[in-house]
Amino acid sequence: MKNIVIVSVLVSLVLIGIIYSYVGDIIGDDMVNILSMLAAVLILGISVGVGLKYVNQMKNDRATGTLADENWDGIGEYKNDLPVGWAVSFIGTIVFFIWYLLAGYPTWAYSQIGEYNEEVKAYNAKFEAKHANISDEELNAMGESIFLVNCAPCHGVTADGMNGKAANLTQRLDAVAVKHAIINGSNNGLVGEGLMMPDRNGLFNMNTGMPISDEEIDVVAEYVANGFTGAKGAEIFAGVCSACHGMDGTGMPYVAPNIRNFTPDLVQAVLQNGKKGAIGQMPSFKTEDLRLTDTQQRAVGTYISNLADQ
């Protein structure tokens, strides 16, 4: 018997201990976390405690009382009164019932959506107070955790695109993507609604006056993908692309995007509109879908822009 007590208490303590060691540091001031830990303690504590109380009675007490007249297949029945603890607890739960309905979650006043709005408001106020003038380093740190939660499922935790399943974000563009854009044009809203890049039939080489050729496409794609290196590519780029993307490929506002580096604006444009290209579809993270706020989009944009630099 002693052993059972010791083992039960030990198991309970160990259990709570393990839970705590795991989550102790993320409990924080989240009321739900605190109440849940408390709940676990109460469930175990009360069950083990009350169980032991009856074990004690099994050991040290005797059942007595007046037997009823009836019996069924030899089973008799005492006319004992209700156990006091039980009756009192029953009334206790009814008191809780009334409290919960009248004060805890009054049926005429409580709304879970209202509760949600409060939660969001409190978060926003706290964020404003703490990070009103958020620095670039902070944005970068913030962006990293946003990236890991929202983007890593496609781009991988290292942002390398997981063997071509999504864009490799450690590099602005690879040759395949560039070729795809040249051959098919591009219309992903990167620099604004309706501003698109023509397909190969609309791309002329100023130097030759001819539409861009297959060979030129290959060369210029390699040029862009390799970080703008190579004399032949530079020539073609100057002839075909620089009118819109600028001589160095860093783009021009409202004309064409930066195809040399990621910039927060570019990433934010991708997040707002999604993007369809050589690999497939990048989903949009529109602000109104609630998943990323503008600040969060800017943060992840900063993070990605810095990634490629390294």
């Binding site: 009382g65 008799g76 006319k79 004992n80 009164d81």
Partner: peptide, 11 residues
């Protein structure tokens, strides 16, 4: 166990 049920009222 051969024991009588403890309390009809509780049942």
């Amino acid at each position: 166990s051969g024991q009588a049920v403890y309390s009809y009222k509780l049942s």
